[in-house]
Nucleic acid binder design. Structure first.
Lengths: 148, 148
DNA sequence: GCTAAAACCTACAGTCACTAGAGCTTCAAG
DNA sequence: CTTGAAGCTCTAGTGACTGTAGGTTTTAGC
């Protein structure tokens, strides 16, 4: 894995994403354009790999691309205030908390559906009955924009 | 909320989704086409509302539309086996479990990032440092197809 | 130097489950 | 009969990629 003049496929393997994703990031301006060989193939160095690692890690943590763009910009303002990065992370944490809470209640509901399903004919199927009638739910689990 | 000859907006309000969504469901064949007035406006009855309620509830529980299509088909086979509906719900439960597990570890990671952030200049920012270097994470939190 | 295969390139379409908008028509109340 | 809300179709856009077609470049072996 030589850092110097890496082709795109090698970079992709080394950070664990796929090739199209890298080209996509370049296309939307998240990654700076790579330098090219005479035959117009992309070649990457250490700087690009670091940036891509940062992006992929943030994506794994669920940050949306606009937030990542902002975070990347912050990295370059070494002397500016950290509060903005903290704010972005905090908002992300809140979003994660909302999603966890909702998923937990969905899980409860699904487990309840499955546990109480004693009929083996459709007409006695608790799963289908529950889906057909919201009143059979204990908890409320309304998606409030925390779906994605 | 008279059940007879409801226009689309009223149906939408009564199940808590929006109008375009209903038209979309009809377009992709998830809801049967509504009957129309002379002026080609859709009018719905109780059967449509029940079906739509079922669909929306399943969506709130995170079922993807193809799974819902299958569940809807099962409802009409009153005498067939319940196992298929159970299987669908069980797969959905597993997906929810995977997502919860991942989100919990993301939350831990985000909390850790925020808790340890004592520098107020970017160069000491734990949030940015963690994103830049995966080795600063305790837990692994790699998204394995449980992202959406 | 030559060949073959792997890897690369661009450009565009598709995914999922909607959402938004333009531009027009119909309905229901007064 | 008028008016304004609500309806209609059609098309495009969202986010974050993924997949495909059809062509070019690179690289390894001989």
């Amino acid at each position: 894995m030589s850092d110097v003049a890496m082709p795109i496929g090698q970079l992709a393997r080394s950070v664990g994403c796929n090739v199209q994703t890298i080209r996509y990031y370049e296309q939307i301006g998240l990654l700076p354009p790579a330098r090219r060989t005479a035959g117009a193939q992309r070649r990457y160095g250490a700087a690009h790999r670091q940036k891509l690692t940062f992006i992929r890690h943030a994506r794994e943590l669920g940050f949306p691309l606009p937030a990542i763009r902002e975070l990347l910009a912050l990295v370059h303002e070494q002397d500016s205030d950290c509060a903005r990065a903290d704010g972005i992370a905090r908002r992300q944490l809140e979003a994660v908390n909302r999603r966890v809470a909702m998923l937990m209640s969905l899980r409860t509901e699904l487990e309840r559906m499955l546990m109480h399903d004693h009929g083996n004919r459709i007409r006695d199927c608790r799963v289908l009955a529950t889906l057909a009638d919201h009143r059979l739910c204990i908890e409320t689990h309304h998606a409030d924009s925390a779906d994605s």
